[in-house]
Amino acid sequence: MSTTILLVDDHAVVRSGLKMLLNEVDGVEVVGEASEGDEAIKKVEELQPHLVLMDLSMPHGRDGLSATIEIKKRWPGTQILILTMHDDEEYLFRVIQAGASGCILKSALHHELVQAIKIVAEGSAYLYPTATKRLMEDYLDRIKNGADRDTYSLLTEREKEVLTLIAKGFSNKEIAEKLVLSVKTIENHKSHIMEKLKLKTRPELVEYALKKGLLGYGV
């Protein structure tokens, strides 16, 4: 059984070239075309294609992102592969949030496009290589930031207060006077803070506080 495809692009020449290319691929059949998002929605309703190859930027009419959201809402089983010239992180995350199953650059080689179509048609996700790298980097950053938030939540309110004052450059004695506590108590708080945050030196505490925005500005 062939994978039926709807081509959506505002340039007729691009659609024509894609149609010629894809109709030469075994197991793939282009069943319709649309030049903008509203037309694409109507064509999906009429033709019920397995997959929509959707241009992201279409200045005349509904754009590809908006059309993707609407199509996935009305026909969640329809797979959508976004075709874009934008190698940009902002577009990448918006595409994923819209519900598309994949994203490929217009500069991709023909065999890469065919591979992407086959992967998405099978129900899997496809991202071009640099996009995958960016997602991994973002995921790792989120884990790191999440870990920071988790360790910070381990601190008591008093320990958070002491941490901020340490980062602002106050000595243990000055902090003790400000908080009306003994120097020994401040030293104990500092020791507990460093243990919970897994830090070893005062400069590391200052750097941590800066990154957390505890001083009103970050790095």
Rank of each mutant, 00 (worst) to 15 (best):
T132A: 10
T132E: 13
K133I: 14
K133V: 13
L135G: 03
L135S: 01
M136A: 10
M136D: 02
E137Y: 15
E137G: 10
D138L: 08
Y139H: 08
Y139G: 08
Y139D: 07
L140V: 12
D141E: 12
R142H: 15
R142I: 04
R142V: 06
I143E: 13
I143N: 14
N145P: 02
N145V: 02
N145I: 05
G146A: 10
G146I: 08
G146L: 13
A147Q: 15
D148N: 12
R149Y: 09
R149T: 04
R149F: 04
R149E: 05
D150W: 10
D150M: 13
D150T: 06
D150Y: 15
T151V: 14
T151H: 06
Y152T: 00
Y152D: 02
S153V: 01
L154D: 15
L154A: 11
L155E: 09
L155H: 08
L155D: 03
T156S: 15
T156P: 08
T156C: 06
T156F: 07
E157R: 11
R158D: 03
R158A: 06
E159I: 04
E159W: 13
E159N: 10
K160P: 01
E161R: 10
V162F: 00
L163T: 01
T164I: 02
T164Y: 01
L165A: 03
L165G: 00
I166F: 04
I166D: 00
I166R: 00
I166A: 00
A167H: 11
K168Q: 14
K168R: 15
K168H: 10
K168W: 06
G169H: 11
N172M: 03
K173N: 12
E174P: 01
A176D: 02
A176N: 09
E177G: 06
K178T: 07
K178N: 10
K178P: 00
L179W: 08
V180A: 06
V180Q: 14
L181R: 11
L181F: 09
L181Q: 10
L181E: 11
K184H: 14
K184D: 14
K184C: 09
T185G: 07
T185P: 01
T185R: 04
E187N: 07
N188G: 12
H192R: 05
H192C: 03
H192I: 03
H192E: 10
H192N: 12
H192A: 12
M194C: 04
M194F: 14
E195K: 06
E195S: 12
E195T: 04
K198M: 12
K198P: 05
L199I: 08
L199G: 01
L199E: 03
K200A: 08
T201F: 13
T201A: 05
R202N: 12
L205H: 11
V206P: 03
V206K: 12
E207R: 15
Y208I: 01
A209C: 14
A209S: 11
A209H: 02
L210Q: 12
L210W: 05
K211M: 09
K211N: 14
K211A: 08
